[in-house]
């Protein structure tokens, strides 16, 4: 350890910090946050090496020598200085170019994925859930409804990859994803199926949802049965009313 010069140690720590922020933190941090943390790291490192005169010499010495140069130094050293002297201003110039160039990124809208259902849907139970005698039959009936109606968007595997999924800018829900139906009550699904995308509150961008208002096309019984099928096929249990 002792054989690595201080400037090398500092470099290694700096790079390790960067890599940790970039790849170890989950979910990934936005680059602006990484930039902020790395600035902090840089300031700390500079503080640390400036506290003691010996450290400061060990750290800044090689940098000063590189910048100032020596009369009897080799050509390679000279060349590398020229390269660094041009690369650094180029880097800052490029950053300035990027920040001045107008961005063509489309406006990104925040949307609430699972808004609270209206009061008339709160507390509803699936009337078929407790009918153990006809359970398999009702699941099969729900499956039939799914594959006649829902499969085109939500897919044969219920993974939201139906043949039309690519055409919609809110991808159809992936029911096999553990953050969808397993986190929701059946009454929530019943609301979303019955009222469709157009029944969403404004914070959930109803204009983007391709979900039809199924109450216009499916009976109430059919809507409950299809919910029964979704849970049965994926193996998830619905959340219950606490």
């Amino acid at each position: 350890m002792g054989r690595i010069p201080l400037i090398g140690k500092v470099g290694i720590i700096w790079v390790l910090m960067y890599l940790a922020l970039k790849f170890l933190v989950s979910p990934p941090l936005p680059s602006s946050v990484i930039f902020m943390y790395m600035s902090l790291v840089t300031v700390c490192v500079l503080l640390y090496v400036s506290v003691f005169q010996d450290d400061a010499d060990a750290f800044f010495g090689p940098i000063k020598r590189f910048i100032a140069g020596d009369d009897n130094e080799g050509g390679l050293r000279k060349l590398s200085r020229v390269v660094v002297f041009i690369a650094i201003p180029l880097f800052f110039g490029f950053r300035s170019y990027n920040s001045n160039m107008p961005s063509f990124e489309p406006p990104i809208q925040q949307r609430v994925i699972h808004p609270a259902p209206p009061t008339q849907f709160v507390g509803l139970y699936n009337p078929y859930r407790e009918d153990k005698e006809h359970f398999a039959e009702n699941v099969a009936a729900g499956g039939k409804i799914f594959f006649e109606n829902c499969v085109f968007c939500h897919g044969d595997k219920l993974d939201g990859n139906g043949i039309f999924a690519d055409g919609f800018n809110l991808r159809p829900a992936n029911f096999t994803d553990p953050t969808t139906i397993s986190m929701l009550q059946e009454a929530f699904l019943f609301w979303r199926i019955s009222k469709g995308g157009i029944g969403l509150p404004e914070e959930s961008t109803p204009w983007d949802s391709a979900m039809p208002r199924w109450e216009a096309m499916l009976s109430e019984e059919d809507r409950w049965k299809v919910i029964l099928f979704l849970y049965d096929y994926t193996g998830y249990a619905p959340r219950t009313w606490e």
Partner: peptide, 13 residues
């Protein structure tokens, strides 16, 4: 701006 920034940094160096 980019050329100005370039020149400023180079001058500093």
């Amino acid at each position: 701006y980019p050329p100005l920034v370039f020149l400023a940094v180079l001058g500093f160096e």
